[in-house]
Every structure is written in structure tokens, then in C-alpha cells.
Design a protein around this nucleic acid. Structure first.
Lengths: 208, 208
DNA sequence: ATAACAATTATACCAAGGTATAATACCACA
DNA sequence: TGTGGTATTATACCTTGGTATAATTGTTAT
């Protein structure tokens, strides 16, 4: 069941838990990295492959929830399976609202965890694909000059060339040239593709 | 804090709970409808305004989870706040995974519920807007003839008129006319708008 | 100052989108 | 058998998109 080229992270301050989970997961053919603190996990260089974090809530310094928030801020899109020995309903709700893919109370059955891991890896794969696509688009966008970007945005909003020219106070010809540049740099051939890209990357608001 | 024109549903087999919640919520200015069974709620004609369902899990016949699934199948997009006297973590996870907006264990504080209700109504409003937009688009699509729909789909995929003509084995002129019909019926003036609509309604796969 | 470079614009030209009108073909219905 | 309606097609014409070439302007670097 292990997807090829996937990696599982385990973060638990209890070394024996780390060891036990690592053993279990490796026996299923998974690559596993264990950490006894949140910062250890954060320092790790995460390869861009389907992955999943099995995370204990009670940790020294940075606890599970705090790590979840940091990951969210940093755009680390690794699905989280929470595990805890002293969980309750409010904690569960909080974790799930924040985007966790599962929440298991210790002790849990091996099968439960494995099922959850499989689901997490599938989600991770989807997330990575979406992320890679958007990253590629933004990479292209970053090659646009400020004016080309502006033209791109206005085209995406459905404005005609002459409307854009009027709005910008320049000539129609300039817009045509710039629009051509945009098409070339974004590596598309038709307006349709351009619009699709614009919507995927949410061009109208993104100005980074 | 009550949004104008909103409605709250309470489903609990315990009449005293229904009464108590109704009293609390009405005191905050909300319109409230209570039901002691899931079927009662399902029979109710839900107005298309921001709304929220406060749902007990243990119910006779159709329990809370079952109702949640039925609503999902029927496309009833009302955010659910689960309440239960005998909840546990697995139940919480199940409910949240299925899309519940919150999960409260009895007894809960009035403030907790009210806060949750407010959040649910906001989400409901967003859901309704999205739903209304897509419904409007699909309504327009339903006025298209089969061939117009086909042309629409191919245009949305970025094909040129002559490519569509070749694919369909008809003349370029026919495609132009049909494309014009599509633009008129979808009530858009530019290709850009048309593509946007197509993506919102997921035209390429939708054939209903 | 001058060479080099980028941005803008003009001119010209072609392809594609879009509309209007009318002719043709096909189908259903009285 | 006609007759009205719809779909298709042809013709003609206009607008818009898109590219190539070259002239112009402004800015930067040597």
C-alpha cells in the first residue's frame, strides 16, 4: 500500500513511541523519519514527495497545535494525523478545524493508523500536484515585467485591448506587444489557456 | 449579531432541549425551527437564506450522522453544529470529516453555541452565494441545444472555431453561428467571461 | 558624449472572431 | 402535398487579436 517515493514523519517526545511507530511503519515498507521535538521536524528538509506527519499533541516548547499553525503559515502542506494520550472533544474539534486529516487517541490499533496514513498520502499527492502547478505558473508570472503583469490582470478580467489601452493611457499597439509578451512568457498559445492559468493562480489579487 | 433573514434549525429528540435552545436562540433575535426527528427536518421546506442546523447525534430512526449523509446526497448545504451528551473522539472525527462546522459536548456554554452559530451562518451565506451562482449558470446551460453545449465545451477547452468545425465535421460558419448562440444564451459578451463560467460550472465534465 | 538597451509607437498585414442576410435542406405536422 | 420551423451553409463585411519591421524616445553604462 505504500506509495513509491513517500515519506512519513513521526513527532513524539516519547522516544519509545517514536521507536514503536517507526518499526511498525517501516515494516510496511514506508520510509520513516522520527523527531522528539517540533523544531527538529521544522529543521528537516522536506522532499517534495507525498508525505504525512504523525504528530503528538503534548510536546515541550512547541506543542502539536503550535506546530500545525507554523506549518500552515510557512505553507508546509503535509497532512497531519494527530495522536494523543489525553485527548478530548474540544481538542479534536480544534485540530480538525485547523485542517488535520485525522485524530487518534492512544492507544489505537495499528490498522487504524495505517488506514489513516494511506488516506493522508493520497491527499498529500493531490496537494503536491496542485502546489507544483501553481508554483510553475507563479514562476512564469515572476518573469513578467510590471506592465506585462498589469496587462495580464486586465486581460484576465475580460477587458479588450483597446479598453486596456484607454485605461493605461497608452496606444493600442503597445498593449498588443505586451500581451504577446505575456502569452510567450506564460507559454500558452490561446487566450483560453491564459484565462485558465489566471484563475488557477488567482491573478486578479495576487501581486507578489 | 443575527444576520438579517437567517434561520436556525434545532433537531433533538429531547423536547426540553429543543425548548431550551429555542428560547436561548430566540432571545438573541434568531428565527428558530425545532424538530424532534430527522424526518421532520427533511420534510421542512428550507428557505434559501443563511441557515444552520444544530443537530443531536442520537436520534430515533435516522440518527445525526445519517441525516448528515442524506443532506449531503440531496445537496442541502446547511452547516451542521453537532451536539451530543455521549460523545467521544472517534465520533467527533467522523462528524468533522463529513463536513460539520462544529461539535459540542453537552453541557456546553451558551456563548460557545452562539459563537459557533455565528460562524455557521457566515459559512452558510458564502455557500448560498456560490450555489446560487452555479445554479444560475446551469440554468443558462439548460437552455442550450445539445450541439450548442458541445460547442461550448470545446470552446472552453481552448479549441479554435475551425478545429471545432473539423472535429464536428461541419462548416466553420455553422460553428460561428452556434458559438454566437452560446454567447447570447449564457448572457456574456466576451470569451473571457464564457471561459470563467465554464470553469465555475465545470463544463468539461458536466453533462446534465 | 556615445553606444547599448529597453519601452513605446507607427505602419502594414494576416488570421480569427463575430454578425447579418439569404439560400438550402430537412423534418414534422396539418 | 404543402407549409412552417429549425439547422446548416454560403457570402459578405467588420472588428479584434496577433506578428513583423522599423522608427522614436529615454535611460544606463562606459
Amino acid at each position: 500500500m505504500s506509495l513509491p517515493g513517500s515519506i512519513l514523519y513521526v513527532v513524539d517526545d516519547d522516544v519509545s513511541v517514536c521507536r514503536a511507530l517507526s518499526l511498525l511503519l517501516k515494516s510496511q515498507g514506508f520510509r520513516v523519519e522520527t523527531f522528539t521535538s517540533a523544531s527538529g521536524f521544522l529543521d528537516f528538509k522536506h522532499p517534495k514527495i507525498p508525505s504525512c506527519l504523525i504528530l503528538d499533541i503534548s510536546l515541550p516548547n512547541i506543542n502539536g497545535f503550535a506546530l500545525q499553525e507554523i506549518m500552515s503559515q510557512r505553507g508546509i502542506l503535509v497532512p497531519i494525523i494527530f495522536i494523543t494520550g489525553h485527548g478530548n472533544i474540544p481538542m479534536t474539534v480544534k485540530a480538525m478545524k485547523a485542517g488535520a486529516i485525522d485524530f487518534l487517541a492512544k492507544p489505537f490499533k495499528n490498522k487504524e493508523l495505517l488506514k489513516s496514513v494511506t488516506a493522508a498520502l493520497v491527499r498529500s499527492k493531490v496537494l503536491n500536484q496542485g502546489q507544483a502547478e501553481v508554483a510553475q505558473i507563479k514562476k512564469h508570472i515572476s518573469t513578467l515585467s510590471p506592465r506585462e503583469l498589469e496587462v495580464f490582470q486586465l486581460v484576465a478580467r475580460g477587458l479588450l485591448n483597446k479598453q486596456i489601452a484607454a485605461k493605461r493611457g497608452t496606444s493600442l499597439q503597445t498593449i498588443k506587444v505586451q500581451r504577446g509578451q505575456v502569452m510567450k512568457k506564460m507559454q500558452v498559445k490561446t487566450v483560453t489557456e491564459l484565462i485558465s492559468l489566471a484563475q488557477k493562480a488567482d491573478i486578479t489579487s495576487c501581486l507578489d
